[in-house]
Amino acid sequence: MGLYVSNITSDSQVVTDVKVLVPDAGVRRRMSRVIRMAVSTAVECVGGIEGIDGLDAIITATGYGCLADSERFLRNVISDKEDLLNPTPFIQSTFNTVGGQIALLRHNHCYNMTYVNRIHSFEDALLDAFMRAEDGEGGRMLVGAFDERTDSQYEIMKRMGLWRKHDCGEGSVFVLLTSQKEDSSIAEVLEIDFPSDSIGEQDIAQRYGCSDDDVILYNVCCTMEIYPTISASVFAQAVEKIKKGASKVLVYNEMWGMTPTVVILGCIV
């Protein structure tokens, strides 16, 4: 029993039209931009909408959730003075909207969880999948992260001084995991750790038993554009490194004053 990566998809890799991925126009029409982005990534990751049928868990992770809809509803509450408000943005604003939508697409009744723990959300979701696999309840699990950029969020975080070194990004990454090694397995999740303090660059390799050939990826160094769940996108880069022959890749996620997380991926042996 372990945790194996069977497929991983980032929003930039979604090539199929959303109308093909989500054929029901009735389901599509209410989806905001971020929901469209995340659900499309999820469906592409499981190889088309029918792929949702075989899932035993849908676990999503987001730092800020469906920000644009939250903002739209809040704006309406204030400007329309709490009168005659459209319910749709309120319904779409909840953090579990994406997870719920994926289940709804194929009426999948499986375990459905949403983590909203800022920069740790994706790692918390991975840990959940890891524990389910160890408990023998794993099967096929879809774990995904998403966050959207809005003008207001950009402006507010700019005033907080958060865009000095990086720019404000957005994105979604979904990973299909299995608890058994399969022919399609491309990497194994070896460890998910939540150290209580920062670890200096010189100490990481020793602490996690990395050799000179192993790769260490730092989330804040891997990308110019960041968002709360950016480490999911660095995790995707780590999977790519494994595909290209690395035997072990460590993702070190630390930013915005939060304690770090460490995820270690290994090649299939």
């Binding site: 730092g63 959730g65 953090f95 740790h120 709360p228």
Partner: peptide, 24 residues
């Protein structure tokens, strides 16, 4: 964000171990 309340609770209640936040 949701995480901020969890961090504040942990800080004021002296909880130092693993913590997370869910929203369903």
């Amino acid at each position: 964000d949701c995480c901020a309340s969890t961090e504040a609770i942990a800080a004021y209640c002296g909880i130092k171990g693993y913590r997370t936040t869910v929203s369903t």
